[in-house]
Amino acid sequence: MPKRSFFPSFFIFIILSVLFIFLSKTGILNGPASLIAKIASPIEKISFGFSSSTNKDNSIVAENKQLIKKLVDFQKMATENSALRDQFETTSPASQNLLPANVVSASSFIPGISSPEYLVIDKGKKDGIKTGMAVVFKDNLLGKITEISDSLSRVILVSNPSISFSAKTISIKGEPGASALGIISGMGGQDMILGNVLLSDTLAVGDYVTTKGDLQVDNAGFPPSIIIGKITSVEKKASDLFQRAKVKSLLDFSKLSTVFVVLSQ
C-alpha cells in the first residue's frame, strides 16, 4: 500500500463519524436506528440465548426466592399492622404496573461466570419507558433504566459501582419490625454495601435489605419495599461514625431472560 494513501479514507470516515454524533444528539437518527435495532433484535436474542441456555434457574433456587419474598411480605405486614394499631402510619400496598421485557443482551467479562455490567431489554420509548424507572424480577430489585432508544433500553444493575440510593433493612432474626436506614452502593458482581447506618441501629447477618422508596412524580426512581438483597457480613466499630454491611443480591443477573419495568406505582 503506497504511503499516505489511507489519508482520504481516514478523513472521510472520521468526518462521517463526527457527523453521526451530531445527528444522533439531535434525534434525527432515531428512526433508522430503531429499524436497525428491530432487525438485529432476533439475532441478539439468539446470540444471548446461546450463552444463557446453560444457566437456567433451577426449581429449588426459585422456590427459595418465593419463600424469601413471603418472609419479607410477612415481616412487612407485621410492621404495618403494628403501625396501624398504634395509628402512627397507614400504608396500602398499591398494585404495580409492570411491563415485561426480554433481555436481549447481558455482557459480562466471562459469560456464565461473572455478573453482567448492564442489561439491554427489548422495550423502549415506544412502550412508555422513561429514564430512571426501576426494573424488578420477582419483587427483587434489578436496577434502573439509564439509556433509552425507541425500541431498546439499557438497565444499569443495582450492583454497579456507579449506583447509590437509600434503603432500609427488615429484621428477620432480631426483634420484629426493627429496621435500619442506610445508603446502598454497588460493588460489582452481585455485591453491594449498605453504608451510613447509625451505630444505634441493629444490623444482623441474614437480614433483608429493601428499597426505602424514592419515586418521583414521573414514576422515575425506586418504589418502596422491593427486595435488594441479604446481609452477608456486618462491619461495626465503636470508633466509627457509621456501621456498614455487605449485601448480596438474591438474583443471579446472568441467568435472567425476562425482567419487569415498573411503569407506575
Binding site: F6, F10, F13, I14, L16, S17, V18, L19, F20, I21, F22, L23, S24, K25, L29, A33, I36, A37, A40, E44, S105, V120, E147, I148, S149, L152, S153, R154
Partner: peptide
C-alpha cells in the same frame, strides 16, 4: 445502536485507532 450509546462514538474510536 445496539448498546444504546451515542451513535458515532465507537466509530470515531475505531477509525482513529485504524488510522
Amino acid at each position: 445502536i445496539l448498546t444504546i450509546r451515542t451513535i458515532g462514538t465507537t466509530s470515531t474510536f475505531l477509525v482513529f485507532m485504524v488510522f
